[in-house]
């Protein structure tokens, strides 16, 4: 299945901003995080289609996965 992966802040360094990638049906967020060389501890926020999701959330065809380190402002 096709998943759009978006990376933000320091996660972009040495990787990419946005990419469409092919994954096996049933892939969860954790699998993609680890495949990108990120650790669970580095993850601040995960969003799937603009909604917050957990690491074990199972993705669907066409989903957009957005990954952020912990960031803030105001």
């Amino acid at each position: 299945m096709r998943i759009t992966v978006k990376l933000f802040a320091s996660f972009r360094l040495g990787r990419f901003k946005f990419a469409e990638q092919e994954y096996q049906v049933g892939t969860d967020c954790r699998t993609i995080v680890l495949a990108l060389g990120l650790t669970e501890a580095e993850i601040g926020v995960i969003m799937v289609n603009g909604r917050h999701a957990a690491l074990d959330y199972v993705l669907q065809e066409g989903d957009t996965l957005s990954l952020f380190p912990l960031v803030g402002g105001g």
Binding site: F8, A9, V45, P69
Partner: peptide, 25 residues
């Protein structure tokens, strides 16, 4: 020590929020 005050804010400023708010709609 905190990732936001120790790293995020000094690197990207408060403007790091544009993308995350955009993603969140």
């Amino acid at each position: 020590d905190h990732p936001v005050s120790g790293e995020g804010l000094p690197t990207y400023g408060t403007n790091v929020l544009v993308n995350i708010l955009n993603e969140a709609g």
